[in-house]
Amino acid sequence: MSAIKRIFGLLWALMGVGIVPLVIKQAMKEIAAKPSEENWIFWSIVIVVLMPIIAFSLITFGVFALKGEYDTLEDS
């Protein structure tokens, strides 16, 4: 079980890293195609609020899992 937790840890960390360029690229593409106020507000919220939370939490969580910090939790 611990091995699976650690392997998945790598996956979470990679997801956290990967999401940043993916979101920024998509935002730039959509805003360039239609630079409306609606688009700006939507992508500002995603980039300023949602993306940092997802990226930070997934990377930190993933690194902890990879290092075996969660191995000792019972009945997981």
Binding site: L73, E74, D75
Partner: peptide, 11 residues
């Protein structure tokens, strides 16, 4: 669901 199932303890 995947994270909770893998890492959360039920005890």
């Amino acid at each position: 669901f995947v994270i909770g199932s893998l890492y959360i303890s039920n005890k």
